[in-house]
Design a protein around this nucleic acid. Sequence first.
DNA 1: GCGACAG
DNA 2: ATCTTGTCGC
Length: 196
Amino acid sequence: MIEPLDAARVRWVAGSDLSLSRDSRDVIAGIVVWDVRARCVVEQVLVRRRCRFPYVPGLLSFRETPGILAAWRRLRGAVDVLLCDAQGIAHPRRFGLACHVGLWLDRPTIGCAKSRLCGEFGPPGAVRGDRADLLLDGQRVGTVLRTRAGVKPLFVSPGHRCDVDSACRVVLASLTRFRLPEPTRLAHQLVTRARA
DNA sequence: GCGACAG
DNA sequence: ATCTTGTCGC
């Protein structure tokens, strides 16, 4: 029996991201684990490896999953859920990168993308926490979430072992003062700075 | 044929 | 993702 994500008990939220080496031949993957209760970083890992697949819309997982899994193996502490900088089920085949990674890790994952891949939606309200349904073929595959006033909303969808609402709750609980949830924002800084 | 298209 | 300058605002 699998254990579904219980947003109320989540404490360690990890965020993953990737960047490319200057010559674009390698991918630099990083994961930052954020304690949503203590509001601090508890662990971070970085790994670099050869890029094996080109970027093709809809096939992002084939390009980025290997790096994320490699970084994950370096983690030593506990993680309740992983926030991926990509789509979950808000995907043409209902199986975006977050689903792919979650299945490999057999852990709860959430897709938290900065832009839309597919699906229709109306504009969410202007206040942090306001949301709009992301529909694909009449099905609710995610939510368009306003994480901060005056900025583009995020596209949140279930990856593995969670539903739209719990995914949204985890993202909201991981926010500080920026558009992106802290684990994701810090993972982005980590991999970006690792190029220099 | 013409747009759209996670990172 | 990466490139790339200034600019508006807290």
